[in-house]
């Protein structure tokens, strides 16, 4: 495993820690899209089915279990925790996320490397992960106040994907890795969706201002 991959995974983990910090200590999920969080649960459930079929490493298995457990836990808090659920910005979380699931199913059925259950579900999970941030970005744009933890959470999620691109470049050049079009293009699309957010996040950080996205 190269440094970019490790940093990417750690950034992903850190984003979850930041979100859990907000939920468990501030007892708030204001500004967090439940729809995006539910999409992540679906992403991890469909991608990590190979937990039952193939073993890679202790690291790999542990991380998969952490991502599954925390994503389900976050959705549970947002839906059922008696304090946290009252802070959910429900009226602003309006993105039609079923449409993203449908789109990803159709795309996975049309474009995949092999036509078997695990492979098609894995491909579906990549397509869905690429667009899963959209409800969250739309919600941020509607929020008048984006608190620091929410901004940092989304930034870390985007940084994780950008680091994965560097990881793929490294593997391609240094490890003689083959072309992997499906994860690469999905990952590029996913990272590109953050471009606008990155711009305003870095700008607010440089000017020491509160993060605000233009409507």
């Amino acid at each position: 495993m190269n440094l970019f991959r490790l940093l990417g995974d750690m950034t992903h983990l850190l984003s979850i820690v930041v979100l859990l910090l907000k939920i468990r200590t501030v007892k708030s999920c204001a500004g967090i899209s439940l729809k995006t969080q539910e999409l992540y649960v679906i992403v991890f459930l469909t991608r990590y089915l190979d937990l039952f079929t193939k073993y890679y490493s202790v690291y790999n298995t542990a991380m998969k279990l952490v991502f599954l457990g925390t994503s389900i836990g976050i959705v549970w808090y947002m839906r059922y925790h008696k304090v946290v659920k009252q802070t959910y910005s429900k009226d602003e979380d309006t993105f039609k996320h079923y449409f993203l699931i449908l789109l990803s199913i159709i795309l996975a059925l049309l474009i995949h490397r092999a036509f078997d259950v695990i492979e098609v579900l894995w491909t579906f999970s990549l397509y869905l992960e690429a667009v899963a941030i959209l409800p969250q970005l739309v919600l941020l744009q509607k929020s008048r106040n984006i608190d620091t933890l929410t901004g940092d959470y989304v930034f870390l999620l985007g940084a994780y994907r950008a680091l994965y691109i560097l990881n793929w470049v490294y593997r391609f050049l240094m490890e003689n890795h083959k072309f992997r079009w499906i994860p690469w293009i999905s990952g590029l699309v996913q990272t590109a969706l953050y471009a606008d957010f990155f711009y305003y996040y870095i700008k607010s950080w440089k000017n020491r201002e509160k993060l605000k996205l233009p409507a």
Binding site: R5, D9, M63, N176, K178, P183
Partner: peptide, 10 residues
Amino acid sequence: AAGGDDHDEL
């Protein structure tokens, strides 16, 4: 291993 498996990432 080089090449081969796509699924070793998270």
